[in-house]
Design a protein around this nucleic acid. Sequence first.
DNA 1: TACTTATCCTATCTGCTTAGTAGGAATTGT
DNA 2: ACAATTCCTACTAAGCAGATAGGATAAGTA
Lengths: 146, 146
Amino acid sequence: MKVTYKGDYALKTILDLALHYDKELVTTHDLAVRIDAPIKFLEQVLSELKKGGFIESRRGNVGGYMLARKPAKITVGEVIRFIDGPIEPIACLKGEYANCSDINKCVFRKVWEDTTKAISGVIDNVNFDDLVSKVKSQQEEPIYSI
Amino acid sequence: MKVTYKGDYALKTILDLALHYDKELVTTHDLAVRIDAPIKFLEQVLSELKKGGFIESRRGNVGGYMLARKPAKITVGEVIRFIDGPIEPIACLKGEYANCSDINKCVFRKVWEDTTKAISGVIDNVNFDDLVSKVKSQQEEPIYSI
DNA sequence: TACTTATCCTATCTGCTTAGTAGGAATTGT
DNA sequence: ACAATTCCTACTAAGCAGATAGGATAAGTA
Ligand code: FES
Ligand code: FES
């Protein structure tokens, strides 16, 4: 599993849209500023997220993006898999491995299967409602630094 | 985390040497045949494993390789980290990430930290004595196929 | 000493992926 | 008409994965 910049931008995008859920549309420009991403690169990420059914858009003068589903219905795992591909740590488990001739004989296979489950156990159990709550509770926190 | 062919060859190398532990030296040629790796590529892997203190070698006519430690004292995690680098799923946690300006504010950070721990929980708890036992028990199994 | 069989060392290469850039077409409100 | 926006396609620079190539060095043996 590798989370690329693209994946990171996608997650931050969904989170930003989740924070604006049921309020206003978010433009690529504003998003790019807030999540600190190159706008032209972000455009491509947004295009993919739309194809993936995560977000919806409105074109034209007062256009922008919004979530296609409730934040609670989108998990980190879903987004990462869609943008960065399978979470399996080795090509073998994705069925693209020449060396895995006899699946039943390789004693490492179970290790990678367990690893995959362990990763899934984390990222498939965090949704964007959880994250929105976390952001909001962070904002309420008092500031102790001077 | 990504396990490359190099990492896979390294693991299979250690396992093969573990199976020959305290018996005979293993040559690159024999190893390459058994684990199905290009010999010249495997040479480089062996060189790295030696530098990493996993294996020892003897040069010359009757040379070859052997484990530098007991199989039980080598874990899958150790080998993978040495050959394929840090297991963290995102550059951010490796300290090579421009976008992680305020570490305390990014709500995704905990997700990646938890993911790292989950992976570690698997690969750092499998050693090569476990794997040797598994190979041997597999060999003892009756064959049900015709 | 010559020969063989090994490890050891360094350079090079090809294809793929990542992260980004570039330029403009299409859409919509004012 | 104009401005602001999404949408679409192509291109590029850098790095990495997975080798390949060619030999130098070491050690046992006839
Ligand atoms: S080669 Fe496929 S699991 Fe090991
Ligand atoms: S940007 Fe560093 S953890 Fe999110």
